[in-house]
Write a protein that binds this DNA or RNA. Structure first.
Length: 569
RNA sequence: CGGGGCGUAGCGCAGUUUGGUAGCGCGCUUGGUUCGGGACCAAGAGGCCGUGGGUUCAAGUCCCGCCGCCCCGACCA
């Protein structure tokens, strides 16, 4: 392939709209162009990468017994109304009406579509399990699309849905997908980590997210340095800590603490450690006001509070709510003497504190010698704190570390949430009707492409991992006026392609520097330079994009050497 | 939706304070010289200054409305 024939308009300067590296580099490398906010055209180079990722995904899905199908993007409202999600999904769903005023949406996901399909055709346990998947555009009208392909409104997704007769079957399907995902991201040569994830309102035991490790990742994860535990911080459970305070419970006293609105201020003024204070965070929820208590040196994990209380919505309480509902004062909230309607959820470690300091619910006052149980009662005592670096691993108690990641996949046990709602049932061995037990497993394909760049780039451009590079090799004749060089470059390129190595040669009448810069920007794993020496000494110069390492191979045996190099990379 | 910023040539930007003939760099076209890390010289093409209204002799610039984009937050693959 001649580079001049590829529609890859590279840019010397970074368009102002791009913030994150993957977005900047894909625009500059002529891979994507924006059509609207969060909606992009994939130009040929990007499309080649996407097809390679999809190919790996397909092979791994098929290897686990998955069958590919294609479902509509435009979905009728009825099935969403039946599952109850037409109302729940809210503004994030792209909705449209046809000429007869019938309601449709652009599919954000396909549980409804696949479940109504399977329910109409599957009757018997003998037909299960079934693993069906699709790769296609999905749509979410994100409040704020950003980061280029990382959070678009239209994106390419692989979703596989499993249907089993019971939970044992689901566990097997789940394991298959977990393994398949591990294979997919390994084959893409990405540094990633499967982490335990929150399974949200659906509950149940199982969900893992697959995180591509990158500084720019939106998700925070913790992992153990001595065992293989890893989790999203939202999910990470915590062992109760040792008691830190001992001694006799002293009488409750009120202290003047003007302008001390933070834990740090209070601790400083009272000459105590942050560990001896109680942090009170006020929330508004669909079940009314909830006060969450953690030790002063800890943070509240909102997701845990949400799950422990079976809530749907939780937000920080407004100042108005703190005054009206809590009858308190922002900055001076505490658990003592609140109105009865305030539900108190306390972290396990708070209940072990003795003679702590907490807000007095009066402006510029705190309470000292607060003793949980004596001075306030918690409605719920649970693990609600956010894990911190060096907290003990919940599996082996060794200190955990933190990292950032980009969520590129999630495996999820749905159980019978959708099969019950949509009546996808089968007859078991005893002729009894039961709902199918489902799982869903997604991979953000277009996001994976972006994540690969976030993890592999330098100041010159992209550094593609070999398996997903748009082309593995670029061949550059240094002097485009030198017919010998040009002819050799074309020959080398043809040879490589004949041996299954995706290659281009840069036939443009440009100075060498321009061609080198574009090659680095686009990020071919290998660059072959054809210069004067290639002609006089019959050698080619091969440079590894990632390391900059240079090899010289003879024109007689470069093929074997390049094949070997590509396998090593 | 709340907070902040921006819409001027394909891209990056200046010009707006103080209204008076629309500019710079890169890219693009043509010719010449160059040719191993984004060359040089010369000559060109290219803009309803996001959009609608208003003020004015005169609006890129002042006023009002609308649209779009980017960043921070709630949401998420």
């Amino acid at each position: 392939m001649k580079f001049s024939q590829i529609y890859a308009p590279t840019l010397r300067e970074t368009p102002a709209e791009a913030e994150v590296v993957s977005h900047q580099l894909m625009l500059r490398a002529g891979m994507i162009r924006k059509a609207a906010g969060g909606i992009y055209t994939y130009l040929p180079l990007a499309w080649r990468v996407l097809k390679k990722i999809e190919h790996i995904v397909r092979e791994e899905m098929d290897a686990q017994g998955g069958q590919e199908l294609l479902m509509p993007i435009v979905q009728p409202a009825e099935m969403w109304q039946e599952s109850g999600r037409w109302a729940v999904y809210g503004d994030e769903m792209f909705r449209l009406t046809d000429r007869h005023d019938r309601n449709f949406c652009l599919g954000p996901t396909h549980e409804e579509m696949i479940t109504t399909l399977v329910r109409s055709d599957v009757r018997s346990y003998r037909q299960l399990p079934i693993l069906l998947y699709q790769i296609q555009n999905k749509y979410r009208d994100e409040i704020r699309p950003r980061f280029g392909l990382m959070r678009g409104r239209e994106f390419i997704m692989k979703d596989l849905y499993s249907f089993d007769k019971d939970e044992d079957g689901l566990n097997i399907s789940y394991k298959k997908m977990y393994d398949a995902y591990t294979n997919v991201f390994s084959r893409c040569k990405l540094k990633f980590r499967p982490v335990e994830a929150d399974s949200g309102a659906i509950g149940g035991s199982g969900s893992h997210e697959f995180m591509v490790l990158a500084e720019s990742g939106e998700a925070e994860i913790v992992y153990c340095t001595s065992c293989d535990y890893a989790a999203n911080v939202e999910k990470a459970e915590l062992l109760p800590l040792d008691e830190i305070s001992t001694g006799e419970k002293l009488p409750l006293t009120q202290v003047h603490t003007p302008n001390c609105k933070s834990i740090a201020d209070v601790a400083k003024l009272l000459h105590i450690d942050k560990q001896q204070t109680i942090k009170s965070i006020a929330f508004e929820t669909d079940q009314g006001p909830v006060l969450a208590l953690v030790r002063g040196d800890h943070e509240v994990n909102e997701i845990k509070v949400l799950n422990k209380l079976n809530l749907i919505n939780i937000t920080m309480a407004s100042e108005k709510s703190i005054i009206d509902d809590y009858q308190s004062v922002p900055g001076f909230i505490g658990p003592c003497g609140l109105p009865k309607k305030i539900k108190i959820i306390a972290d396990v470690n708070v209940m072990k504190m003795i003679n702590a300091a907490a807000g007095a619910n009066i402006a510029d006052y705190h309470l000292q010698n607060v003793n949980p149980g004596r001075d306030f009662a918690a409605d719920i005592i649970a693990d609600i704190r956010l894990i911190q670096e060096n907290d003990p691993c919940p599996h082996c108690a060794m200190p955990v570390k933190k990292a950032r990641g980009i969520e590129v996949g999630q495996v999820f046990k749905l159980f019978t949430k959708y099969s019950s709602a949509l009546k996808a049932t089968y007859l078991d061995e005893n002729g009894k009707e039961k709902p199918m037990v489902m799982g869903c497993y997604g991979i953000g394909v277009s996001r994976t492409m972006a994540a690969a760049i976030e993890q592999n780039y330098d100041e010159h451009g992209i550094i593609w991992p070999v398996p997903i590079a748009p082309y593995q090799v670029v061949v550059i004749p240094v002097n485009s006026k030198d017919t010998n060089q040009v002819q050799l470059a074309e020959l080398v390129c043809r040879q490589l392609n004949l041996h299954g190595i995706d290659s281009v040669w840069d036939d443009r009448n440009e100075r060498a520097g321009v061609k080198f810069k574009d090659a680095d920007l686009i990020g071919y794993p290998l660059k072959i330079t054809i210069g004067p020496k290639s002609i006089s000494e019959q050698t080619v110069e091969v440079k590894e994009r990632k390391t900059g390492q240079i090899h010289f191979f003879s024109t007689s045996d470069y093929l074997e050497n390049i094949i070997e190099l590509l396998q090593k990379l």
